[in-house]
Amino acid sequence: MSGSAGRILALLLRHGYVLRSSLTRALEIAYWPTMQMLVWGFMSVFLAGKTSYVAQAFGVLLSGALLWDVLFRGQLGVCVSFLEEMWSRNLCHLFVSPLRPWEMMVGLMALSVMRLLIGIVPAAALCGLFYGFDVTSLGWPLLGFFVGLIVMGWGIGLVVCGLIMRYGMAAESLAWLLGFALMPVTGIYYPVAVLPEWLQALAWTLPSAYMFEGMRAVVVEGQFRADLMLQGLALDVVWLAGGCAGFMALFEAARRHGQLLQQGE
């Protein structure tokens, strides 16, 4: 394999070697999604006996928690893979190699999928084991929700990587903060309609709001809302394009201001 594919594969191998050599790291990736799933699972069991909403649609909170992880871990997967290069002071070597910035972006997105699968597959399996809830019961729309949410995560993650390149490790905390900032308005566990009107307007600019509404339609009403899926995916295109443009603009700004050099040394 040569050219762009070979260089992207090199990035994947580099991170694959780290995961292979450190069981702790692989376990760490799976740890938080599993904990979250356990907490929301027991919460669902408790609430199912108290409220008819959860009783009728037991999986609504669990599906919300799982899909939130797709968005959040998808974004974090991009950021942490990039931060690994910063922490190991390897970024300078990468950017003076033939690796093009767009190849790095594709590599980061592929790594995000890798990390996400390591994180959520065990959590989803435990969900079935402990609570008898099979997430694949959402059917093929699950694939659409997965794509819609991870793509949004990539868009956010790429901008965060750009900010880290431009402003250094001072921007590192954004990797953890930015995703959570969207949590209250994206309607993970409640419909967007419960938000104040002005926040609803903001929520509908997020692809995730369409995905979570769509998820509730499937779990609660047993109905697939193609309109929500299409609107969410269309917005995803805008978010991903914005993420790529932001990454490139901030990369070029970092090159102008000598930030890549300082990070390397």
């Binding site: 070697y17 050599s21 690994e84 190991s88 002071r89 390897n90 070597h93 390397g264």
Partner: peptide
């Protein structure tokens, strides 16, 4: 002044 990844062989 520029390292290679320490965890890799």
């Amino acid at each position: 002044y520029v390292d290679l990844p320490n965890r890799l062989t």
